[in-house]
Design a protein around this nucleic acid. Structure first.
Lengths: 351, 351
DNA sequence: CTGTTAGCGCATTCAG
DNA sequence: CTGAATGCGCTAACAG
């Protein structure tokens, strides 16, 4: 509970000097600084974050907005961003915005109405900047982020007006689909797409890659895209539904490894052989994908998060009068490469 | 960027009235309150968290300290605590404290020296309370938490002096071990225990249950306990080592499902049959445990996190003059039940 | 190099 | 019911 005043009194200097000494400003005599530091430590003094941010206008905290924690992709992003920001002295405020339920598998619809909105109250005055993980943002939320005047980085497909880092999701869809087509599959279906109409919505882009590849091969999708969360539980639900419906496509492109593994489990439980009867491919390259022999499109997860964090740090710590920051050098969008990982859940049909 | 003063000026009242009106204090005329609220919304006014906490001494934020995010158990805890605290108006500061490397499999050792410490700077003045997830705390850290004077809840085995919620980890070890013993196994080994000497260390308690059960059955462990992280990667590393060492025990008790699944994968890759040659049991009941047919000791994860969050809310929101809080009714320790889930990775030896 | 003086934006006395 | 004044703890000019 010691305050700066206690330290000042005990040391015999002014609070201003204490403040300077403790922050390492060069304008303090070494002996003075040493004395201040000793007293501060002895008193267990820690500056009040509230007072500091009120005085400076900076909070030394960033917001981290995510729709999930227990999905591997997001967990790794969170770990990476937290470590990077903390190593630069920033605290991380975790804000979970569940995606909400959606009505499916109907036609392209708007965002689920029950999803909590990204309110400005969540962010403003509490953080200096924000990183948003692959959330399906509403137009109003994008507008709010712009209006806020705070730096925001989006990890996912390019969002108009937001600086983004991610992978080429259209290419992700293409890679997965082409792999199945080349194996000889003709009846393909896409699972975990998004019914979101905005063309930068993460999963929609993968779906576009899927559709494009089919078209180029003279095919059309065997059944409508399934809009669902990309979790094991959803995968199991969808898997059971596919079995019940019967007449399954021979190739399933799943938007995440968790989804794929859930689907495969239910398929096999019902006697459908994978990959002999049905081929399944995922996205991410989850640790369990390797254990399970799941074919997948791998993406660099930690790398994306690191780039996002680096951007934040750069923006928050104005370069110390170096060569003037070349605005043109700051690309608004960075895309990392993805790659196909062939394993045991895909094969030529009728093998 | 609107401040309370802007709202006051625009509404034609004092800042004090604005403050009262917006916080719903009863001492404001209804028409006045309505006007203030309208103006505030129109101006997009949001109170500054820094100013509020400087004035009130409360931050409306809690710290959430965890050693992992991508391990399922912790991810679920994080999601649950965040949701609970946010629904009560609290922000959540995420603090990841990696467990650090340890020297193994030597004799009981102290905490790994390279682990970042839980410094008071991380918490003090920034949060009103803290929940700590199953971290291997050092004695100095426990002392610091006490000295801080802030409420802290520990999710894990009972820590002296801290309010805790968890499961009976000794019983977890017992259940798993007894299952294998009853199947007829005589050469058992424990993986993922902790070389931490403090008897409340999470994994050590499971190990104690393991040892106790063996002793009661007239057995002793087939080989020294392995001290490692409870991840898939560690499981694979340990699995390869077991194969290389040869002469594997016929029963392996693993401290987490992730660890168990990693071990099993490497065992099978090397031609060791599970469960015919070696039985493996995990802990947690991870979603992938069911998919993989892993026998495990299930624990209620979200429930533990909910109880922890509820305690925090209770302490932070002093009951409004209800019946005086009965100190005796506040149990310092709560334990939730665990249960054995038999699946396909355990069987009688030589089956 | 160091001390003095103002606020940062809000909640809270205490008067009215 | 409302307003004016005070202070939360710190940093940032501005003097010295």
């Amino acid at each position: 509970m010691a305050s700066i005043e206690d330290v000042a009194r005990e040391t015999g200097v002014s609070t201003a000097t204490v403040s300077r000494a403790l922050r390492g400003l060069s304008s303090v005599a070494e002996p003075t600084r040493a004395r201040v530091q000793r007293v501060a430590k002895q008193l267990g003094y820690v500056p009040s974050a509230a007072a500091t941010s009120l005085a400076t206008g900076r909070t030394r905290a960033v917001g981290l907005v995510t729709p999930h924690v227990s999905r591997w992709f997001f967990a790794v992003c969170i770990e990476t961003v937290e470590a990077a920001m903390r190593s630069h002295g920033y605290d991380v405020l975790l804000i979970i915005l569940p995606p909400g339920q959606r009505t499916e598998p109907g036609p392209l619809a708007a965002l689920p109405p029950d999803r909590p909105r990204l309110e400005s109250e969540l962010l403003r005055k509490r953080v200096d900047a924000t990183v948003i993980l692959s959330l399906r943002l509403g137009d109003d939320e994008v507008a709010m982020l712009h209006g806020l005047g705070r730096t925001a980085v989006y990890l996912g497909p390019p969002v108009p007006g937001l600086r983004t880092v991610g992978v080429d999701d259209v290419e992700v869809g293409r890679l997965a689909t082409r792999h199945l087509v080349e194996l000889g599959h003709r009846r393909l279906r896409f699972l975990g797409g998004s019914a979101d109409e905005r063309d930068w919505a993460p999963q929609l882009r993968r779906y576009l890659g899927f559709r494009g590849t089919l078209t180029r091969a003279g095919l059309s999708e065997a059944a409508p895209m399934v809009d669902c969360d990309l979790t094991v539980e959803e995968g199991r639900r969808i898997g059971r539904r596919l079995v019940a419906e019967g007449g399954i496509a021979t190739g399933l492109v799943c938007c995440s490894d968790e989804l794929a593994l859930g689907v495969i489990h239910e398929l096999r439980a019902a006697g459908v052989r994978v990959p002999q009867d049905v081929s399944v491919i995922g996205v991410d390259d989850h640790p369990f994908a390797e254990l399970s022999g799941l074919t997948t499109v791998a993406q660099p997860v930690a790398e994306q998060a690191e780039i996002a964090a680096r951007w934040l740090v750069e923006v928050l710590a104005p370069p110390g009068r170096g060569p003037a920051a070349d605005g043109a050098a700051v690309l608004p969008v960075e895309q990392l490469p993805v790659s196909l990982v062939r394993r045991g859940t895909t094969a030529s049909p009728g093998t």
